[in-house]
Nucleic acid binder design. Structure first.
Lengths: 161, 161
DNA sequence: TTATTAGATGAGAATTATTACTATCTTGTC
DNA sequence: GACAAGATAGTAATAATTCTCATCTAATAA
């Protein structure tokens, strides 16, 4: 259902190709492919960091000085909803805390953002260290399983949702 | 250096034991062990969900009606700094985005919150599914390596930091 | 126990992040 | 080119977090 799952973009795909893909996705989703959306999408594709909405706004404003921050937020949400881009890690809107210090991982619902603990037992150690950039001192690995919880996955029959 | 690494709290440790540990940690860190801090810590230990500062504030207010939200935030930050509690997933303050749809993971500096990509190649598949709660539909696993990047790990000799 | 003092607290202002509202403007279609 | 659905800019409103500062309290020494 999500485009990223439907069509795999190749890493070496140049921007023109990606843009074409983007336009097709918009058309398929019934979304007008506005100039603002194209420029925003381009900024996302070209970003090597993991920009925040504010950072994107700054970049896009160089191309479209009149663009509004609201447009950036609105379209980011739309892109995410349609799987055109991804969130680096699910953002809960506010800080979330725990005193549980047993090794464990998390299950996060991408819709309601509810979180569940998962005991670390059974999750095998991750061998990643050799891939790490110079000087980064890893203290722990956290595994997050992203998906839909039972409630959010349920077809919204009866009641509203 | 961090207490959670220095002393391992046992899962079956009752609250009195934890509180004693907490007091020792405070003393060791030169932190006055105020009533507010104890009540806040207790609320964290007893929480089964992954509360936000606001949620904690609501709970703690039942015990100390005069407590202020600022105190909750201030102490949460202190507890985190001293490793007395943990963040469920590193909170970036704002949404962070990426158009990179190649399978990859992230390296996050717990100090400056900078993020680096890690190719997924080499990270072996995680076998976790049998541990999942009923009905949760996992779409992807995200591995985050938390630690300190080179800059933040560097001893703050010369220059300020 | 009291005096001392570093550091904590509560209250509210200030900032930052995000969403909502609305009059106008564009895209896609006919 | 005209139309309708939906998008945009600008601004107001809300949520999340931090800051400021005048008191107050925990920890220590007398």
């Amino acid at each position: 259902m999500h485009p990223l799952r439907r069509v795999r973009i190749q890493p070496d795909m140049d921007f023109e190709k990606r843009l074409e893909w983007f336009r097709n996705e918009c058309a398929a989703a019934g979304l007008p492919c506005t100039h603002q959306r194209e420029v925003l999408y381009r900024a996302l594709v070209e970003a090597k960091d993991h920009p925040s909405p504010e950072m994107l706004y700054e970049r896009v404003k160089r191309k479209i000085p009149s663009i509004s921050l609201g447009t950036v937020y609105r379209n980011i949400k739309i892109f995410l909803d349609h799987g055109l881009i991804g969130e680096v890690s699910l953002h809960h809107g506010s800080l979330r805390l725990e005193a549980n210090n047993e090794p464990h991982h998390h299950l996060v619902c991408r819709h309601c953002r509810k979180m569940f603990d998962l005991p670390a037992a059974g999750v095998h150690a991750i061998r990643l260290r050799r891939a790490l950039p110079e000087g980064f001192q890893v203290e722990r690995f956290v595994v997050e399983a992203h998906g839909l919880c039972q409630e959010c996955a349920a077809p919204k029959k009866r009641r509203s949702n």
